[in-house]
Amino acid sequence: ATCPAGHTANLGQVKADGARTAQFKRVCTDCLLRGRCTTSKTGRTLNVHPQHELLTAARHQAATDPVWQDEYRRWRPPVERAIAWLVAKGNRRVPYRGILANNIWLHHRAAVLNLRRLINLGLTRTNNTWHLAPATA
């Protein structure tokens, strides 16, 4: 691994999760770029994700592949909109303590948002049967 000043450090042993760490302890002490590089007293530490190569390839594909970019442009707006609906009106944080209560709350919130969306699209009930209004052009 190489720091912004051009110093190199070896990646350490592979950890249990597959991550590796490069430590620039000694070279940081006299480095002129230390203030811009790290605030740590012991020097810069670089953590390398276990899936580093896969993530790098995915970033490269996202930056260069026109098919990927078209798909991203197609699906990002509805996903962002759904997230905005989910966190609207003070729902950015979970309201309860404990995983089970918050899991139930989240599922109910999503169900209500889905039902609201379906009603806005024309969901009606006649003769004990639910119908979605036909799409108009």
Rank of each mutant, 00 (worst) to 15 (best):
V67M: 07
R20I: 02
A58D: 10
L33Q: 10
G35A: 08
D17A: 10
A110E: 07
H108Y: 14
A22V: 02
R76H: 14
T38L: 02
G18L: 12
R26G: 07
R44W: 13
N120P: 04
A9E: 00
L106Q: 08
T38W: 10
D17H: 01
L115G: 07
A5K: 00
L113T: 04
A101H: 06
R117D: 09
H7E: 07
I119C: 09
N127E: 14
T29R: 03
T45I: 11
G12K: 00
H60C: 06
A62T: 03
W75S: 04
N120H: 14
P77M: 06
G122L: 00
V14G: 01
D65W: 03
A82M: 02
R20P: 03
V87D: 08
G43M: 04
N120F: 09
E53V: 11
A58Y: 11
H131R: 10
H108R: 15
N91F: 04
G12D: 01
W85N: 02
N120E: 14
W105M: 02
W75Y: 13
E71R: 14
L123C: 06
R117V: 09
A101E: 04
T136E: 08
R116F: 05
K41V: 14
A82Y: 03
D70H: 15
L100Q: 08
R92N: 08
V67G: 06
D65A: 04
T42L: 03
P78E: 11
L55S: 07
T8Q: 10
P77A: 04
C31T: 04
R76A: 13
A63G: 09
G35I: 00
K15V: 09
R44K: 14
G12R: 00
T124L: 06
Y72F: 10
K25E: 13
I83N: 11
V94K: 02
L11S: 06
N114L: 14
P134E: 05
A19D: 01
N128G: 10
G18N: 00
C37N: 09
R81T: 11
G43P: 02
R73C: 12
P78H: 13
Q51C: 05
G43Y: 09
E80R: 05
L55M: 15
I119T: 05
N102E: 05
L106W: 12
R93D: 03
K15W: 09
V48Q: 12
G90T: 06
H108C: 12
D30C: 10
P50L: 05
N120R: 06
A62Q: 13
L46R: 03
L118M: 11
R109Q: 08
R97E: 10
A5F: 05
T126S: 13
